[in-house]
Structure formats: structure tokens, C-alpha cells
């Protein structure tokens, strides 16, 4: 089936089997390999992307369901020139080790901070509980997200 949607600001058109998940479509068809697949049953959060601004698990969504949607992946939240404030905060707090779960945390944290730049530590933990990290023990990730709040408070820009 042909499906058209926007990824990181660019229109794409792909011809896919209905059974292809959005996660696989991003990785295989669009070669956006920053979105990682860690469980394929909606538990680990490594595949989190933004669909029309909402953080969703791209392994629990079909590519054909993205038709007409705006999809943003970790690549879309990055630029080559510099790390974003959220990424800088992750680096400063050593909120990543092996890096495999990291894209899912970045997308999830970005969605949270965009909507709730005043969130407290409990809310950060509650939201991040849908993402599994096996390396850090989460303490540093929570610190990084809290520390990045200030960057989201003014005019909603990253």
C-alpha cells in the first residue's frame, strides 16, 4: 500500500505491506536508524517517535496508519551544528551509556517538556517509566530532563 506522511519536515511516500510497523518503516524504508527496536511489544519505549506531536510507540503503530501524519524522530530533534539543550543536558548529566534506549528517551522527554515545561521530578519519573534503560539506573536521566526544563519555558522553542 502507498502511504504518504511527513517525516522530520519532509514529505515521504512509501509503498509498504500493511503489516509493516512504523518503526520498521522508519528504519528500513526511510533509513532513519536512530529509532531503535528493543521489544516489539510496546514495553521498552526505545522506538518512541512523535506523531502529530504525541509521543507514541512506533512498534505499536502501522506505517499505513501514519498516512497524512507528521512524524518526528530523534534525527528530527537533532542538528549537526550543535547538540540541542536537551541533548546537552543528557551529556552533562551522563544520562546515557550504551545509547540504545537514548533516542526513545530524547523523543519522550521532548514531548513532555514541550507540553509541560514546569513538570516536577515525580512527573518526569512517571512519564519516563514507559522507557526502559538498562545502563544508567535512571537517576541521571531524570536529572537531565529536569535540568533541560528551562530551555522549553520561553516561546516553546528547543
Amino acid at each position: 500500500m502507498t502511504t504518504k506522511f511527513e517525516v522530520n519536515g519532509k514529505q515521504v511516500e512509501v509503498d509498504v505491506e500493511p503489516r509493516l510497523t512504523l518503526a520498521d518503516c522508519l528504519r528500513q524504508n526511510l533509513r532513519l536508524t536512530g529509532t531503535h527496536i528493543g521489544c516489539e511489544h510496546g514495553v521498552c519505549g526505545a522506538c518512541t517517535v512523535l506523531v502529530n506531536g504525541d509521543a507514541v510507540r512506533s512498534c505499536l503503530m502501522l506505517a499505513v496508519q501514519a498516512d497524512g501524519a507528521k512524524v518526528v524522530t530523534v534525527e528530527g530533534l537533532s542538528n549537526d551544528a550543535d547538540l540541542t539543550p536537551l541533548q546537552k543536558s543528557f551529556r552533562k548529566h551522563h544520562a546515557l551509556q550504551c545509547g540504545f534506549c537514548t533516542p526513545g528517551f530524547i523523543t519522550t522527554a521532548h514531548a513532555l517538556l514541550t507540553e509541560e515545561p514546569d513538570c516536577d521530578a515525580d512527573r518526569v519519573r512517571e512519564v519516563l517509566s514507559g522507557n526502559i534503560c538498562r545502563c544508567t539506573g535512571y537517576i541521571s536521566i531524570v536529572e537531565a530532563v529536569l535540568d533541560a526544563r528551562s530551555a522549553y519555558k520561553k516561546d516553546g522553542a528547543r
Binding site: 519505549g45 504525541d54 507514541v56 510507540r57 514531548a111 513532555l112
Partner: peptide, 9 residues
């Protein structure tokens, strides 16, 4: 119910 991302869908 579940987690943040699940609650979005």
C-alpha cells in the same frame, strides 16, 4: 493505565 506513550494511543 499503562504509560505515557500508550496513553497517547
Amino acid at each position: 493505565v499503562a504509560h505515557y506513550q500508550i496513553r497517547n494511543r
